Amino acid sequence: MVRVVVGIGCDRGTATETVTAAVSAALAEAGLCAADVVALASIDLKRDEPALHALARVHGWPLVFYPATQLAAIPVPHPSEVVRHHTGTPAVAEAAALCRAHADSADLIIEKRRWRGEDGRNATVSIARLNE
């Protein structure tokens, strides 16, 4: 069994359905299921995002948050200056997944994938193999 961490970023106020669809699509692309996920990780700016808490609660996944300074120190394959402008770090989903997984970019199973929901909001998902 592969054990993974899902890193996620999203627009403010993203619907739970959008976040759920983004994570489900990424897991399916990787050939994984919810039982393979050991944690959901994001930036501390999203600590009050209801969709993230709802997703974690439904699946029983621990939800962890990291400060932008910690995420900014993690090398990622797809940094974004737009993301840096808004959050203080060039990556949220990839960096959060790698941080919680104690991994490096070679352990990314799914690199940054953006999902636009029916609510018009975006969610970004990355999946990293847990390095214990």
Score class of each variant (00 low, 15 high):
94 E>W: 00
11 D>Q: 08
42 S>Y: 03
50 P>Y: 10
62 P>C: 03
87 T>Q: 10
96 A>E: 01
45 L>T: 09
64 V>S: 05
34 A>I: 05
8 I>G: 02
89 T>H: 05
115 W>L: 06
108 L>F: 15
33 C>H: 10
106 A>P: 04
130 L>M: 10
48 D>L: 08
51 A>S: 14
12 R>Y: 14
4 V>T: 07
49 E>I: 07
5 V>N: 01
45 L>A: 14
108 L>A: 15
118 E>M: 07
110 I>A: 06
58 V>M: 14
38 V>F: 04
45 L>I: 11
37 V>F: 00
7 G>R: 00
79 P>R: 08
42 S>G: 05
97 A>R: 01
34 A>V: 10
99 C>P: 06
122 N>R: 09
52 L>N: 00
100 R>Q: 14
97 A>H: 01
57 R>T: 11
50 P>R: 09
38 V>W: 03
94 E>P: 02
3 R>C: 06
27 L>H: 12
5 V>D: 01
40 L>M: 12
117 G>Y: 02
47 R>A: 10
40 L>Q: 04
111 E>L: 08
113 R>F: 04
124 T>N: 12
82 V>G: 04
132 E>P: 11
57 R>P: 01
65 F>N: 03
78 H>I: 10
13 G>D: 12
79 P>A: 15
118 E>S: 15
24 S>P: 07
30 A>C: 15
11 D>F: 08
54 A>H: 11
48 D>T: 13
40 L>Y: 04
29 E>K: 13
61 W>S: 01
8 I>W: 05
69 T>V: 12
94 E>F: 00
2 V>D: 07
20 T>R: 15
109 I>H: 04
15 A>Y: 08
4 V>L: 09
53 H>V: 07
55 L>M: 14
56 A>F: 01
63 L>Q: 12
96 A>Q: 04
10 C>E: 05
78 H>K: 06
35 A>W: 13
17 E>K: 13
16 T>Q: 11
77 P>R: 07
58 V>G: 06
22 A>K: 03
103 A>M: 02
123 A>I: 00
36 D>P: 02
128 A>T: 01
126 S>I: 07
83 V>M: 11
122 N>Y: 10
83 V>T: 08
24 S>W: 06
10 C>Y: 06
7 G>I: 01
13 G>P: 04
6 V>E: 03
81 E>H: 15
15 A>P: 02
7 G>S: 04
53 H>L: 12
46 K>Q: 11
57 R>M: 06
20 T>S: 10
113 R>D: 02
71 L>P: 04
22 A>G: 11
123 A>M: 02
60 G>I: 04
29 E>I: 09
113 R>H: 09
42 S>K: 03
129 R>D: 07
93 A>Y: 01
116 R>L: 08
101 A>C: 11
4 V>C: 14
29 E>F: 11
70 Q>F: 13
28 A>V: 13
61 W>N: 02
86 H>T: 08
50 P>D: 05
1 M>D: 08
11 D>C: 10
93 A>R: 01
121 R>N: 14
67 P>D: 15
69 T>W: 14
77 P>M: 15
34 A>F: 06
4 V>K: 02
89 T>S: 15
35 A>S: 15
